[in-house]
Design a protein around this nucleic acid. Structure first.
Length: 184
DNA sequence: TAGAGGATTGAT
DNA sequence: TCAATCCTCTAC
């Protein structure tokens, strides 16, 4: 599943919400698994919220964090193996004007550099939770970009200090030197 | 049914 | 460093 997190780098996340097409290249991800405490579905914890992660790979898991931000994940494993990859940052491709409008800014800079921001820019919200990525509202495209191994940086994940030693797992991946990754 | 806390962000 | 803000989970 860490492999999936790395494979997603360089691919394109596309949404069509309210007839507006927006997309961006995935430049930063984090992996989550039932095997570690950083995951909502740790130890197969199955609740109304984590139910989505028990679906087969290829579904969208969207949830509200801190009451303010919606975070977008791709479910990556088989049925009843709750694992997901959080999309943390994008490089805008299509629909840049729409993104700027949604973010209420005039410049394109850094409007998708963070998991809570990119969902807002692409119009993603919890209505898309549980959607298949094969439908026409949100999906992933492979545009053939090859990210060479030496350009993938693996480091610790962000904001999960509560996970104890599992917070040390180097399951955050980003494209080396890419200006669109989240800061931290 | 009440209380605590969170895979964040932007302002101070 | 801290508040915003509300859904989710746990315990009573």
């Amino acid at each position: 599943m860490q492999r999936v997190a790395k494979d997603l780098l360089g691919k394109v996340l596309v949404t069509r919400v309210n007839k507006s097409l927006t997309s961006g290249i995935i430049v930063e991800t984090e992996a989550y698994s039932f095997r570690e405490r950083g995951c909502h579905a740790y130890d197969y914890l199955r609740t109304a919220r984590t139910e989505i992660m028990f679906l087969p790979g290829g579904h969208a898991y969207v949830y509200l964090c801190y009451g303010i931000h919606q975070l977008f994940n791709v479910v990556t494993n088989k049925v009843d193996k709750p694992e997901a990859v959080l999309i943390r940052a994008l490089q805008p491709m299509i629909g840049e004007e729409m993104m700027m409008k949604r973010m209420a800014v005039e410049k394109l800079t850094r409007i998708t550099s963070g998991p809570g921001k990119l969902t807002k820019a692409l119009g993603i919200d919890r209505k898309l939770n549980g959607n298949s990525l094969l439908n026409d509202e949100v999906w992933i495209e492979d545009i053939g970009t090859k990210i060479v191994k030496k350009d993938i940086v693996a480091t610790t994940r962000i904001g999960i200090d509560y996970a104890g030693e599992d917070a040390e797992l180097p399951w955050r991946y980003y494209i080396k030197g890419n200006p669109w990754i989240s800061k931290a």
